[in-house]
Design a protein around this nucleic acid. Sequence first.
RNA 1: GCCGUUGUAGCUCAGGGGUAGAGCACUUCCUUGGUAAGGAAGAGGCCACGGGUUCAAAUCCCGUCAACGGCUCCA
Length: 650
Amino acid sequence: MIKITFPDNNVREYEAGVSGLDIAKSISHKLAKEVLSIEVNGEIWDLTRPINEDASIKLFKWDDEEGKHAFWHSSAHLMAEALQELYPGVRFGIGPAIESGFYYDVDLGDEKVLTDKDLPKIEKKMKELSSRKSEYARIDVSKQEALDHFSSINEEYKVELINDLEDGTITYYKHGGFTDLCRGPHLPDTGYIKAIKLTSVAGAYWRGDEKNKMLTRVYGISFPKQKMLDEWIEMMEEAKKRDHRKLGKEMELFTFSQNVGQGLPLWLPKGAQLRERLENFLKTVQKKFGYDQVLSPHIGNVNLYKTSGHYQKYGEDSFQVITTPQEGEEFMLKPMNCPHHCEMYKFKPRSYKDLPVRMAEFGTVYRYEQSGELHGLTRVRGFTQDDAHIFCTPDQLKDEFKKVIDIIFIIFNALDFKDFITQVSLRDPNNSEKYIGSDENWEKAERAIIEAAEEKGLKTVVEYGEAAFYGPKLDFMVRDAIGRKWQLGTIQVDYNLPERFELEYTGSDNQKHRPIMIHRAPFGSMERFVAVLLEHTGGRFPLWLTPDQVVVMPISEKYNDYAKKVSDLLNNYDIRSVLDDRNEKIGRKIRDNELKKIPYLLVVGEKEAEEDNVSVRKHGEGDMGVMSIKEFSELVNKEVEEQLSSIHSY
RNA sequence: GCCGUUGUAGCUCAGGGGUAGAGCACUUCCUUGGUAAGGAAGAGGCCACGGGUUCAAAUCCCGUCAACGGCUCCA
């Protein structure tokens, strides 16, 4: 007999060789039906794998990540089996579970091309195979056996993977007619997989290296119940409605033009208005935190970027230099604002008493992103960073860093971004030549970031190798409508540029010292921020941010003049009212998506015109009665003020 | 940059070797005196662009450009 310890520290005895599934059955029939994988002494196992000694266990169901993982990983194997039956000779790369669903990378040979039209056929095959309820069997083999086996069936990718594994026992998983090199865990059998949707096919480089062959990646998702799949499909359709590219067009915020160029957004009047409101909001916050606004030009002499080191590192893959009639004179579109700000720091001698110096600029930069990378407003070639650089002494670093975190909190709180991820990006310990600056400085910077994040109570994910080449950073990532992660706020510590630009301050010891530089952008960029904001709100902004707050509708043509008067008066109160052309005549429908996003509707007619009143209707809240124009404007101003003061007092 | 898909009216899309289609939006007219509303008519397209095949190309083929889903990249 062996002792099994449950998560609640309850201990029960079972015969040696008991499986996770047996244990679940011993608890309840229902649990046995729902359980998908098991943790045994900290390792995730198959439910059917025998447990031979005392162990602490935890059972995972669909609601647990570990349960879903086993389910989707098993689905990937099932898809591989289907592909093997449908396309004999197909060779397999890797097929993992991912955040939502699974994929398999396959090589179909040079002549066969898989397209979306093939997916239903594969789905059908998978369902047929799942109904056979083939068991997933775990098989231990030696490395040599594994190599011999996969070589004999020409699975070159698997052979490559095995060669990279350490010597010793290797595991296979076999179900039906498909055997794969795999660590597991898997479901007991394929019958668990009841609902399957293959979502897309894409190209993917073998082992993620663009020098390697491109394999065909088939993406899919699966569920234990058809109803869950239906719900997922419905959710994805809802999410597509919140796509910022769709909303941006509908709301007339921004557009792109082939004539202007790829990745160069055009901000339409309402989009410009939205941006202005966001910028004013951040400027107000930054002013409180002691920032000074600065301005710098859109181009700079090539030598500036040679000094900063950006030219050497990125020059060739960037927009190319701009020449002038003057021989040898070369400029570049600015890819970042930092060098300009460094020059501003240098314009006069600095004392330790002047620090920290905080320079903020809504700086538009141009970067030649690969064409396939461009994506709506989230990845563009010309964009405006809500940039700032803080020049401070080593003693001030941590405190300044924490204050930047505060600003980001204020913004995320104001816009209700709750489920963001904070990532600390450090050096790749195995690849130190990628980075510039001394080890000592890197260590100091990394420590400062980790400590500041800890002291602010952030739950961070640490990623090695994700640091910028000049310093470590703390990034704030937010998801879009369909769950893709985008980096918004970023804070970076830099010991490198102060060195390159020979920045100095005079310390209390009357000696020259080098300041440390913090790069930070709480929004990230206006473009990406607006995109994510749109997807989060579905285009319904809080009143303070809404470009148009009021629409005025005359009840008949006779009251057009009065409607205009109301509109003009409100604009004086800094309330944005619209009196759309289409409202000048009664008989127009206000059913435009854009108009429906305006929170207040004022109806005016005879009754109102007599005493300078308006009838107020709030979207989603209904009739608010008749009041004077002044009362109405006070009402709106108060609402905006309350929203802003709750933000600023955060 | 790479793999795949797509490109038809302002928008969403149907069609498809022989005179270009729908719904919504737009314009005009009508109706509507009370709360995100109705009706009629009209206008609108080098079918992304450039080549080729054909008596004939929006349709088939090739190329370019752009968008979309991924990969790689992301100062």
